[in-house]
Structure formats: structure tokens, C-alpha cells
Design a binder for these strands. Structure first.
Length: 271
DNA sequence: AAGAGACCCTGGATGC
DNA sequence: TGCATCCAGGGTCTCT
């Protein structure tokens, strides 16, 4: 499942092959992928727009286009983007194809069809509610403390809330809490200053590790070129239910919080 | 504000 | 081998 490190990895790869390209057509085979505008308008409006830069905000890929337009793509669970030659064999579940003036194509493949494309002039209408970027300079331990002290939610569901922190998903939330030594059910406003510092450091540590390892290919995530990342080989708790904790040997436990599976070490992360 | 649950989807796992 | 059922997971929505 693409989270911040997986999206960042994909953005970096696409930047090389896509910046400078101009869209020549849009072929939409699953219209519900187009969140806005309506698919017909999307199809007409994207033609002739040039990709000037590709960035990332949380788990969203942000394509800055000519004419002050922005293409925003969220991969959700199984979305995958790749730039290929127009005559490359078509894979199953390729639901949208954006033709490029060079003859190549940007193909959006998404088995579970949760991914979304947005073509907007004001990107704030899509990104406006996102919380801070966890690797940005202004995300300091003090900033995190200010956010935490006014919330009483349990840490795990809070970390998954994109308006609290942008980009953290189920893998990196579990990993960050393990590295911080914090129980997933701890109330946000109950943390001491040193625990907040530990959480802040752990969030940045696991995200940077994920980027350095080019993402976690735990389910179906692949880089744009189809190869795997390496972060799945460095997880401490995620999907390691009943396996021994690398730190203390206790079996990793799995519980469900906020409807999401949650993995933690009952010895290293006491409530 | 917090928490629970439904929904969208499909492939893979599990059960019989 | 084959069929039915369950489940994960990001984000959004509804209800309490």
C-alpha cells in the first residue's frame, strides 16, 4: 500500500521520464477513477497541457502542468503509474491511459480501483485539509507536541489521520510506534516530552528508511519500472504477528484499532 | 471530538 | 478440484 515513501519513490522515478512531456489524449476505461472534473471534461482539458514538474504532498502525487493546471493522483491501495511506449503490451487492470506527444503513454493501473485522478486549477481543493509534511523543516518536536496535546485519541488511529500528519499509513504508523516504544492505544495527550521527542524521531526515521529503501513491496506496491522496493525487509512489527520481536523476543501481537490491523510488541510497547 | 461501522473493490487465503 | 465466504486496506461518510 503506497504511503509517503512509496509515493516519493514513484514521483522521483516519473520525474525523469515525464517532465517536459505534453499530454495528447486521455483514454478512460473506468470513469469512476476520475474524481474531478467529470470524465468528459477531464478528457478534453488535459490535451495540450505540458508537465512542468512533479511533486508530492502526503500520499498525493502532484503534477504541475502548463496553463496553471494541476493533475493530482492518489494511488490508494493498488494504484501504479508507469511511462511506457505506446505499443507496450497492455496489462490487466489498466484503467486510464494518458497519451504523450512523444509517442509514449502514462498508464494508470489499479486492480482494486480505489485510486483517483483530479485535474484542478486550485490544488487546495484537494490538498487543503492535509496536515503537516512529516519530513519538512517546520515539522518540529514542538509542533508535534502542540498538535498532540489537544487530542485525546489513541496514537495509532491519530497517525493514520491525514489531517493530523500527511503521508503516514498503516505500515509506517506501526513501525514508528515500535521505534518510539509507544503502545498504539496510548492517548495522544498523555505523552511526556521525552515520549513526544521519541515519536517525532521515530516517524522521521522510518519514513527516511522507507525512502532510502525505495518503498515497501509488502502487498502489490512496485516502483514505476515494476521492480520491488526493499523496506519490507526492514520492518520490525508490521505483519509479523506471533513472530519474535527483534529487540526482546516476545511474540508480536496483532489487534484491530479503528478498523485497521495494528502490530506491536507487548513487551517493548507497554500501555 | 471520538469511535464504530459501512462502503468502495478484487485477489488471495481459507473452509467445506 | 471447485465453489462460497472472508479479509485487507486508504479515504470518506454516517451514526451514536
Amino acid at each position: 500500500m503506497p504511503e509517503l515513501p512509496e509515493v516519493e519513490t514513484s514521483v522521483r522515478a516519473l520525474r525523469d521520464s515525464l517532465v517536459g512531456e505534453t499530454f495528447s489524449e486521455a483514454r478512460i476505461y473506468w470513469p469512476r477513477h476520475i474524481d474531478r472534473p467529470d470524465p468528459q471534461t477531464f478528457r478534453e482539458r488535459i490535451v495540450g497541457l505540458r508537465v512542468e514538474d512533479i511533486g508530492r504532498r502526503g500520499k498525493y502525487m502532484v503534477f504541475s502542468l502548463s496553463d496553471d493546471e494541476t493533475l493530482i493522483i492518489h494511488l490508494r491501495m493498488t494504484g501504479h503509474l508507469a511511462v511506457v511506449e505506446y505499443n507496450a503490451p497492455l496489462r490487466d487492470h489498466t484503467h486510464t491511459i494518458l497519451g504523450l506527444a512523444s509517442g509514449k503513454e502514462l498508464r494508470f493501473n489499479d486492480t482494486r480501483k480505489f485510486g483517483r485522478l483530479y485535474l484542478v486549477r486550485d490544488q487546495e481543493e484537494v490538498l487543503g485539509k492535509l496536515g503537516p509534511e512529516p519530513l519538512a523543516p517546520d515539522f518540529t518536536p514542538e509542533a508535534l507536541a502542540t498538535q498532540l496535546e489537544r487530542r485525546s485519541m489513541r496514537l495509532k488511529p491519530l497517525l493514520l489521520d491525514q489531517s493530523f500528519i500527511a503521508g503516514v499509513g498503516n505500515i509506517y504508523a506501526d513501525e514508528a510506534l515500535f521505534h518510539a516504544g509507544l503502545h498504539p492505544k496510548r492517548a495522544a495527550d498523555s505523552l511526556t516530552k521525552s515520549e513526544i521527542n521519541a515519536l517525532h524521531a521515530a516517524i522521521q526515521k522510518v519514513l527516511r528508511m522507507g525512502i532510502a529503501r525505495e518503498g515497501a513491496s509488502i502487498d502489490r506496491y512496485r516502483k514505476p519500472d515494476g521492480t520491488r522496493g526493499d523496506m519490507q525487509n526492514a520492518v520490525a512489527v508490521f505483519r509479523r504477528t506471533d513472530e519474535p520481536c527483534y529487540h526482546c523476543g516476545a511474540p508480536i501481537r496483532r489487534i484491530v484499532l479503528g478498523g485497521r490491523s495494528t502490530h506491536y510488541c507487548p513487551e517493548c510497547q507497554v500501555l
